[in-house]
Nucleic acid binder design. Sequence first.
DNA 1: TATGAATGAGTATTCATTCAT
DNA 2: TATGAATGAATACTCATTCAT
Lengths: 207, 207, 207, 207
Amino acid sequence: MGRREQARQDKERRIREAALTLFLEKGYEQTTTKEIAEAADVATGTLFLYVQDKPELLALIFQERISAAVDKAFARLPGHRPLIDQLLHVFGALFDVYRPMPDLAREFVKAQFFVRGGKMFDESTRFRDSFQARMIPLFEAEQAAGRLGTDYPAPFVARMAFSLYFNALSAWLHGAADFKTARTSLLRSFLEIQMRGLAPVRKGNPS
Amino acid sequence: MGRREQARQDKERRIREAALTLFLEKGYEQTTTKEIAEAADVATGTLFLYVQDKPELLALIFQERISAAVDKAFARLPGHRPLIDQLLHVFGALFDVYRPMPDLAREFVKAQFFVRGGKMFDESTRFRDSFQARMIPLFEAEQAAGRLGTDYPAPFVARMAFSLYFNALSAWLHGAADFKTARTSLLRSFLEIQMRGLAPVRKGNPS
Amino acid sequence: MGRREQARQDKERRIREAALTLFLEKGYEQTTTKEIAEAADVATGTLFLYVQDKPELLALIFQERISAAVDKAFARLPGHRPLIDQLLHVFGALFDVYRPMPDLAREFVKAQFFVRGGKMFDESTRFRDSFQARMIPLFEAEQAAGRLGTDYPAPFVARMAFSLYFNALSAWLHGAADFKTARTSLLRSFLEIQMRGLAPVRKGNPS
Amino acid sequence: MGRREQARQDKERRIREAALTLFLEKGYEQTTTKEIAEAADVATGTLFLYVQDKPELLALIFQERISAAVDKAFARLPGHRPLIDQLLHVFGALFDVYRPMPDLAREFVKAQFFVRGGKMFDESTRFRDSFQARMIPLFEAEQAAGRLGTDYPAPFVARMAFSLYFNALSAWLHGAADFKTARTSLLRSFLEIQMRGLAPVRKGNPS
DNA sequence: TATGAATGAGTATTCATTCAT
DNA sequence: TATGAATGAATACTCATTCAT
């Protein structure tokens, strides 16, 4: 029971590590699946029992990190601080996952963004959905506290926030902004404007 | 003089038309440059006197349409209506360019978005810049009229607006929203929120 | 006792049926042994306890049918009719086995005809031999009755007849003749000529 | 003018020779197209400007030889001798083409016999047709001379003769008969029987 | 008998692009 | 300008078969 499963997990770990090492060393395109299999000490065919195709190796690498980062970010959420800081805290955690490997990150984002259909598309959709789902309560709480208007439903708000994060991330990945600018000022400005735009309409507002 | 130039333009037109026809018929990847050359009735090598590489054929197809659409959109700008309607008018014109060929549009966006360096990257950057430059006056006018705050400079505002447009477009291209929803309600909501978030802080506002 | 054996036969039947179904549905090459195993509800490895390799699945399908058809054909041999009708009766039975699945038949014939060595080659040789052996008495009887010359030994005659059958079959399988033409007129003509060519030299024949 | 064409023919020759050499050295399957290209001193891609696929390299090798052999055989036809000797003369020429390279011949025959559609299928059909067409006059002459019956049209007779040749050839290629037996006695017997079977019905024959 | 995870061989072919003419 | 023959890089992935359990 444990034996079989353990062997499996061990193999997957070796594959993941070999892929990461080689991708960082030689770049994604320059690395062949055969090399990865060799480095992981499995047969070429075995690799494809663990992933469906090469791009999925990227997913294998990032999804684990992203999951962990998101879990940690939500666990340590600075709930006493303004919403915008909480958002920056969470999105910043994502930025930090990508930071050490911008080239690979670009490949990963590209693969997720432009591949249609397939396991990877599904997983990326699932991630986005679940991520947004975890943000919704934050917006709902803000609405309940009267600090956020209710003209737009919380899910829509979450989605837009994610879009803004994605734009800031892209700006960095494509060289339009350096990491710090993108992660801090660009993202913050985007979210500030969004939050302001969603502020509740004050009663008795002099027109 | 005109003779030479005319022949040249005629060839380019044939190439552009052949490329479009074949791309729509068989898809971008499935179409070979040789086929396009044949359909355009030029030699294989001649094709590359008119474009630098295959992706540039996509650009050839879209840039012309986009330029025309943008020029027309700005020429017919409904200046008397609220800014948001003007923005929707302009961005909507871009949506309409892509509408008849979503698959090709996805390829084009992908090529522009994820290719780094090269003529195409430059042109795409130039387009974005010039497009945003044409929007800046709109925002400046709005600021001058006191309908838009000055916390954020107009260029930044224009850039964010473009990002929101791009997100709405992507939502359609990736099947997250149908065309009408993306072009109309999604884009409008995004921009509404942005505009509200950028509203000037009213003086004498009771805090 | 019966239990074990019955289970075995049941599995083989399931494998045979799954293979046939899938081969007809998707074609021989397009069907994987894994799919067959799944459809037969056995493990991938189990399949290879029942056949040695993939081509043998073809044999499994055809040999059963062919054996039955040949047995039946010889059992119902129209012994009172001319030899040529008896031959057509027997060869026709083979044609009828292949008729419902020409594509698969082509694969089978190819595998038998061009694979050298191996179990399948042996079985195919054995089949041909035994089949010809069953025909030999027919020719011998004809010779004994003085209706067939004795210049060529009956085994040789049987072999040539089989060759002619094979040619007619091939003509159909390769599209040079439709089924009916191949099975009826082509085969009949071939055999008629052969039989005439083997007619006994009449004594006292005026030269 | 001659320059271009000459270069082309030279390249084709080099490819053909390289292919033959390597096929004989290492076997058809064991030889890679890349090796052939290298040996012929052309780029890998260039190879495929001269043939459509690997099997066609076989055709390139054999068709030239076969054409030459057939032309020569018909040119030196022993017209004064019995038809059967003329047939053996022609078919024997084909046997002799294959003799020095039985393994390659088997591959070639297989490729021709079992590939459906494509350039090779067409060429093989064309060859068979044209070959049979050249034999037809022989049979017609025989019919005109009253040495061959007219029950079966000459084209059909030619076709059957070809079938018999093919069977004898196959017998050799598959090890059922050695070369000499197949080429001489097997083929001769087949044709003798056929010719006798097609002998004219003698008038005034006592029934 | 049965399982099913693991193996690993194995290369023809395309096609964007160039460059000698 | 135009031609079109020539170039050559470049690898992910399948799947029949095996074998440790």
